[in-house]
């Protein structure tokens, strides 16, 4: 009989408790964003689609050698032993592991998975897998719309960060004030 009553009470109590938790979360702000319109900021060093700085590449094949899945195909001709006339630099994103090894072995630091400004292209949605064999030479980075979105997100973030920094500074100032008051108090105490 005791267990019976306890079961009834327990189930009601824990249900109400759970409902309190969900209610609490009902009033919290959402954590998701509307993806194509809003972008989540990418960290620096994000691993997206590669970009190649063809001017400084010395055609040493290290990236192609280290690649665990052999997805880099490169062909160029040396002109007058100095310049490279590029024919092919393809990365097959059907295979690519996004492991960052090709970037690390590069002796000239000319291949990147993010653009130098920290933005990166990452969407690989396609209905035709053959389109995933991308020509990195032709790939010009973000589209205009993407760039605008990135700038917008970055500005927003900067604004938020500034606000946060401001709030933190204020807090700190307040804390410092308290501290100095404390010190004053202590000084008074010691004076006594």
């Amino acid at each position: 009989m005791f267990t019976y009553m306890r079961n009834v009470v327990d189930s009601l109590r824990t249900t109400v408790k759970g409902m309190q938790v969900t209610w609490k979360n009902l009033r919290r702000p959402e954590t998701t964003v509307e993806y194509p319109e809003q972008l989540v900021p990418l960290p620096e060093g994000y691993r997206g689609i590669h970009t190649l700085d063809t001017d400084i590449c010395i055609y040493c094949f290290q990236c192609a050698k280290i690649c665990p899945v052999d997805c880099i195909e490169m062909r160029a001709e040396r002109v007058e032993k100095k310049f490279l006339s590029w024919e092919v630099f393809n990365i097959d994103y059907n295979k690519c592991l996004f492991c960052d090894l090709c970037i690390e072995v590069c002796p000239k630091d000319c291949i990147h998975m993010d653009k130098r400004d920290g933005s990166a292209k990452f969407a690989l949605i396609t209905d035709d897998r053959s389109t995933l064999n991308l020509d990195i030479l032709e790939y010009k980075g973000l589209s205009e719309a993407d760039k605008v979105a990135v700038v917008k997100v970055r500005e927003e973030n900067a604004k938020k960060a500034a606000e946060k920094a401001k709030a933190a500074a204020e807090k700190k100032a307040a804390a410092d004030k308290d501290e100095s008051e404390d010190k004053k108090d202590k000084a008074d105490d010691s004076g006594k």
Binding site: P43, G45, R47
Partner: peptide
């Protein structure tokens, strides 16, 4: 993601150390 640029398959811990220093 902040430290290594990837969200699921990190390849962050490398033979001999780690890939990047903490930002």
């Amino acid at each position: 993601e902040w430290i290594c640029g990837a969200r699921l398959t990190y390849n962050f811990i490398r033979i001999g150390g780690v890939m990047r220093d903490c930002p």
